[in-house]
């Protein structure tokens, strides 16, 4: 075999070897570039343009969309959103931690069933689950009806269309996202560590503070991330349960795109939202040092 011929065969061989990765990875790469990377870059671009008189885009560089965000009016919307996200996260931890602990430490033969009962709501429509709370909370709703007929109240309570209702809706919708990582981290916890702590003289509260809590912290942070971030984007919950006075960042974005037709401002808000989530995820990854733990799904 001549040298030239040989180099041709090795090249051919290389091409053949490389062919398999190409057909497995080309579709996904093309798709994600076209439908994720390009659209997100478009949003970034639009956020630096000016709004046209009739709602279009004027391709002229400006930072005014970002400056506008610091207008007290919009700033309140942002702080409101963060407040709701924070309260929802805290509520999920407070309700979810003891719950996840009980489920993770339940007798083995029930455990799978109990877990399954958490997974089912996780998979079912968040809109419908939000709606079910509207059915319960509205003025003519189930709770008011029960209370009225029991004679506990004489006037229906205004349970819906306030910040509290939004937090209930968010908590209900995102609760499984908190419980599943908590469950995973608590189930992994080695019982002998708790026994060792007790053996060394720790009181129950001290065992929890010094051993259980630090060891299940990865579950708490993962769960918090999985609750906090979606809270910022679930516009239909605040739309349906919050009424007109509780505007959140997601409602504002939706508004700019569909009603006010101010795309540049809406795009700038989206970029801010995205940067905030990326910072949170970055902090999370730095604290855990891996991205594996996000894969609770």
């Amino acid at each position: 075999m001549s040298g030239e011929e040989q180099s041709r065969t090795t090249q051919e061989e290389k091409r053949r070897r490389n062919w398999v990765p190409v057909w497995t990875l080309a579709p996904v790469s093309l798709w994600m570039v076209l439908f994720v990377a390009v659209p997100l870059l478009l949003v970034l671009m639009v956020s630096f343009t000016k709004r046209g008189t009739y709602g279009g885009i004027v391709y002229e560089f400006t930072l005014e969309n970002y400056a506008r965000f610091f207008d007290p009016l919009y700033f309140t919307v942002m702080s409101n959103s963060l407040l709701v996200a924070l309260l929802t996260t805290v509520a999920c931890i407070l309700v979810g931690y003891p719950f996840a602990y009980i489920v993770a430490r339940s007798p083995r033969r029930y455990r799978n069933l109990l877990l399954m009962l958490i997974i089912i709501p996780f998979w079912s429509s968040s809109l419908i689950r939000t709606y079910s709370w509207i059915v319960l909370l509205r003025t003519e709703g189930v709770i008011n009806n029960v209370l009225l007929s029991a004679g506990l109240i004489h006037e229906p309570l205004a349970l819906l269309y306030n910040l509290g209702a939004v937090i209930v809706g968010m908590t209900y919708t995102l609760f499984p996202f908190m419980v599943l990582p908590l469950y995973a981290s608590i189930e992994k916890l080695d019982c002998s560590l708790l026994e060792a702590a007790r053996d060394l003289g720790a009181r129950p509260w001290q065992v929890f503070r010094r051993v259980t809590l630090p060891l299940t912290m990865p579950g708490i942070t993962a769960g918090s991330l999985l609750v906090f971030i979606p809270t910022l984007g679930l516009f239909f919950i605040s739309d349906l349960m919050g009424g007109s006075r509780t505007m959140m960042i997601s409602n504002l974005i939706q508004n700019q795109f569909l009603t006010a037709r101010n795309w540049p401002f809406g795009a700038a808000l989206s970029v801010i939202l995205m940067i905030m989530t990326l910072i949170l995820i970055g902090l999370y990854l730095r604290s855990t040092g891996s991205k594996e733990k996000l894969e609770v799904v």
Partner: peptide, 27 residues
């Protein structure tokens, strides 16, 4: 890079991908 592109739609609030796709289709 591909890994990150796959994670982005999962981790960012859905509304961002929604308006990004809207902008993409509209433009």
């Amino acid at each position: 890079v591909l890994d990150s592109m796959l994670y982005i739609p999962i981790v960012i609030p859905e509304i961002v991908l929604g308006i990004a796709l809207l902008a993409f289709f509209a433009l």
